[in-house]
Design a protein around this nucleic acid. Structure first.
Lengths: 236, 236
DNA sequence: CGATAGTTTGATATCCTTCAAAACCTGTGG
DNA sequence: CCACAGGTTTTGAAGGATATCAAACTATCG
């Protein structure tokens, strides 16, 4: 089942016609290896991309070689509904794991939004949620210390994956390396490593290979003072 | 002249009909005192707000009393084109200065977007730019140190104000107090104060009262390694 | 089974914080 | 027009979270 539909249905109620249209959008898809770059800063994309499977991230590469990850994209996520409105990309998108990526020509995208108001609304919702997540990440990086920030991110990932049915209880596939976690929090690998050890030794998480398990949701959420309102998962 | 139109014209080419429609949107406006709260977390807004004059900010208030400013809104900026899509607000909006705020009922907003595709496109553009600014702020808070981050923000403010004709050469009205700057960078007032002193003593800026002057644009931009692409100011 | 990526550890340095107080504005009421 | 109040800016000294550097250890994969 198409995870884009599954994701949008957290917000929208689709009829069969809507679902058929969305399925039709994603017929042209390609399997890609981890690490591959999807879009580079300066590109002028004329396709919208949808992650049907696998993880990706948006990142900014700075002149001094530093990299900041500014968003993590999970299965079902869209790379910018209306991206072709902008002249050129101001950041890059790369794959964090092997992935299945659908390519949607801009005209088809425009067509479906004109013909299906429910879908257009759902895309607006998805854009607004992306922005809300970005705001919460500002708090993660700014106000919260390393431990609370990482705790917060792990809960966010878990909820977003549950939304598309990809969480296995309290446990899920989480392909970010410590280097990449460091790049999302603008900390060093060393400090991320010590932070993870702390969360582990407190019995809050288990992280083996690329599998993350939240051992104590309540305590982890309390530590991060997590509230899920910014994800806007509740249908009205 | 309506600053909303002026702002959107950085991207869109409007005809007289479009302009009339946008002017009609902003007829109901109210003058409000600095510090006033426009929207609170948990609110269920049914109006879109437009800043016709004055500054505002989006902020998140955390349980421990900390506050993180996650966006600064300048004259001409819109408080969420499609905000009524979400069930409730996940953050607050407050005024940073005395301001003139227009209230647009959601139906009117929807109506104008249906009837004027150019305007709908311009609103999408404005939303995408807001998101791009948020990403750049992540870099400001995360990767850049205090001096470079503040330098970067000042240049951004200057360019955004120029866009709507509110910069007086290299100098502009900038109402943020050091406390509020500290809240946007998640630093302490003490450190912001020392950062400002550094920028001043380097001959990069002058900041007297609420008036900021960029004394050396080139050096300030170089310090922040500023590139303006994320503001997407260039019409295609 | 060697190469390469990812994780872990220790010791020292730095940016930023904390606490506490003084100095400086700016507006308001008498 | 002065005096006071509250917000804002500035300063100093000491402490803490995270960085830096460098190296060892451990997976993973062709």
């Amino acid at each position: 089942m198409n995870l884009l539909i599954r994701k949008l249905e957290a917000f929208a109620e689709f009829d069969d016609d809507d679902r058929r249209a969305l399925t039709g959008l994603c017929v042209r898809s390609e399997r890609m290896r981890a690490g591959r770059s999807l879009i580079r800063e300066g590109d002028r994309p004329d396709h919208v991309r949808v992650l049907l499977d696998g993880w990706a991230c948006r990142h900014k590469d700075l002149p001094d070689g530093e990299r900041q990850i500014v968003a993590v994209m999970l299965p079902g996520d869209i790379c910018d509904v209306q991206i072709f409105i902008l002249k050129e990309m101001d950041h890059c998108i790369s794959l964090l794991s092997e992935a299945e990526v659908a390519l949607i020509p801009k005209d088809e995208m425009q067509g479906i939004m004109d013909a299906h108001p429910h879908i257009a609304r759902a895309f607006w919702w998805s854009t607004l949620v992306d922005e809300a997540i970005l705001r919460e990440w500002l708090v993660n990086i700014g106000t919260r210390d390393a431990t609370r920030g990482v705790a917060h991110l792990f809960i966010e990932m878990w909820l977003r994956l549950r939304q598309v049915g990809l969480a296995d209880g309290n446990s899920f596939f989480m392909p970010l390396t410590q280097v990449q976690l460091a790049e999302t929090f603008a900390l060093t690998t060393v400090h991320i490593n010590r932070t993870l050890q702390l969360l582990r030794s407190d019995g809050l998480i288990k992280l083996e290979g690329k599998r993350l398990t939240i051992l104590d949701v309540k305590r982890l959420a309390a530590l991060a003072s997590f509230t899920s309102n910014y994800l806007h998962l509740d249908r009205r």
